[in-house]
């Protein structure tokens, strides 16, 4: 048995070891979240020293703000696209790379390339690809006999054009996660499945997929949180326009904070984004906890 004195010594040692990380975490994560909430209670331009306490006034305006709800809707669309398209695509690419097809190395480089480029470069690249007059995408469409599409200028289409680019850019990231997880699956499981007479479809659904559940959970958390705080690619490709057709919480927060100089209102948007992301993560973690407890699929 460990004496209580020794236990206390241990606690101090542990604290000492996590202190550097804890310090960075508190200063750069916890403290800004608290101050953001604090700013969101004020009517403040972000420039002058004048602040007026308005309580939850900013949140009330937010609730009645048509553009906020539009932006939230677009964010939900990104979440859906990320979870339902990006992650499965990442998984498919990882499976292709884990199989024994020819040209695996070539695919490896091809698949991973988009993720290596900076977002600004990707944004500009696709602005040129989607150019309504001289862009390759429309050139190909016209060559195939279709009429050209104003990809980034049509309010009904622009959001999907950007979503396509996001999926193209980030699928390789999930591919890497899945590849690492697939490499970690013990061969014995597949051998046992062979003995039981499983075909490759059975092996995928009863061995590969269940073992990948924890990775899928992690990927989903990353995808959801990443989608909620999306900003850069939208800022570059559409700036939230035309009108507000591709406005997302990130671009709307930026516009309120740094163009309209309503820093209090922008802080309210930022804190709302935090709360939504936090709730999503808690829900996913709870489901995962329950799943483990009941031992389903593991």
């Amino acid at each position: 048995m460990i004496s209580s004195k020794k236990k206390r010594m241990n606690a101090w040692t542990i604290l000492l070891f996590i202190l550097p990380a804890l310090l960075v975490y508190v200063v750069y994560v916890v403290y800004p979240i608290i101050t953001t909430f604090n700013y969101s209670l004020f009517d403040w331009s972000g420039l002058s020293a004048d602040t007026t306490f308005v309580g939850l006034g900013n949140y009330v305006s937010l609730y009645m703000d048509r553009i906020f709800w539009l932006a939230l809707q677009n964010n939900v669309l990104i979440v859906m696209a990320s979870v339902l398209l990006q992650i499965p695509l990442g998984l498919i690419m990882a499976l292709i790379l884990s199989s024994s097809i020819k040209g695996r190395r070539f695919f490896n480089v091809m698949f991973f390339l988009p993720y290596l480029m900076s977002t600004v470069a990707i944004g500009l690249l696709w602005i040129y690809m989607f150019d309504p007059v001289n862009g390759p995408v429309n050139q190909i469409l016209m060559w195939l006999g279709f009429s050209p599409v104003s990809w980034l200028a049509d309010p009904a289409i622009a959001i999907y054009a950007v979503l396509f680019v996001i999926i193209w850019q980030f699928s390789p990231f999930y591919m890497i996660l899945f590849r690492a997880a697939i490499v970690g699956i013990p061969d014995e499981l597949y051998e046992a499945a062979d003995i039981d007479g499983a075909n490759s479809k059975n092996k995928f659904f009863y061995v590969t997929l269940p073992t990948l559940i924890p990775t899928i959970v992690t990927s989903s958390i990353l995808a959801i949180v990443g989608s909620l705080k999306a900003f850069d690619i939208f800022y570059i490709m559409t700036g939230g326009g035309p009108g507000h057709a591709t406005e997302i919480l990130g671009t709307y927060m930026y516009k309120q904070g740094f163009i309209n100089f309503s820093m209090g209102y922008a802080s309210a948007i930022a804190f709302t984004m935090f709360v939504i992301a936090f709730v999503c993560v808690v829900i996913i973690q709870t489901l995962e906890y329950l799943r483990r407890k009941r031992g389903i699929l593991s």
Binding site: I127, D131, P132, N134, S150, W151, L152, A153
Partner: peptide, 23 residues
């Protein structure tokens, strides 16, 4: 106007390209 103008950022130069290429 050229089609799709609301999706073209001026700074990326595609608008000026339309002039230079005499389109």
């Amino acid at each position: 106007f050229n089609p799709g103008f609301n999706g073209i950022p001026y700074d990326a130069g595609q608008g000026r390209q339309l002039m230079y290429s005499e389109q």
